[in-house]
Amino acid sequence: MNSLRHAALLAASLSLVLLGGCKESPQVLDKKAGEYQGKVDTRPWEGPAYKGDKATWESDLRARSGNQNELRRMPD
């Protein structure tokens, strides 16, 4: 991970020098075939809304799913 981070930082500083305000993103210089080369992401329950509480997030999502089932509110 360190090398990746290093590369990203290097690219970042290079881009600042070379590209100035061009808004072009830094390119990945070092890549391992078949392995994700991008930035890491957080899990959805790790954001400000759930702060790592995965169980509540899952439960909320299940409850929310029920809104897609109109049969709950339209009995025969």
Partner: peptide, 18 residues
């Protein structure tokens, strides 16, 4: 460039910087 990743929930995402 292997910009794709899959989340634990099975969502396929990608890094636009890559």
């Amino acid at each position: 460039t292997d910009c794709f990743y899959r989340t634990e929930e099975g969502v396929v995402l990608h890094d636009k910087d890559v």
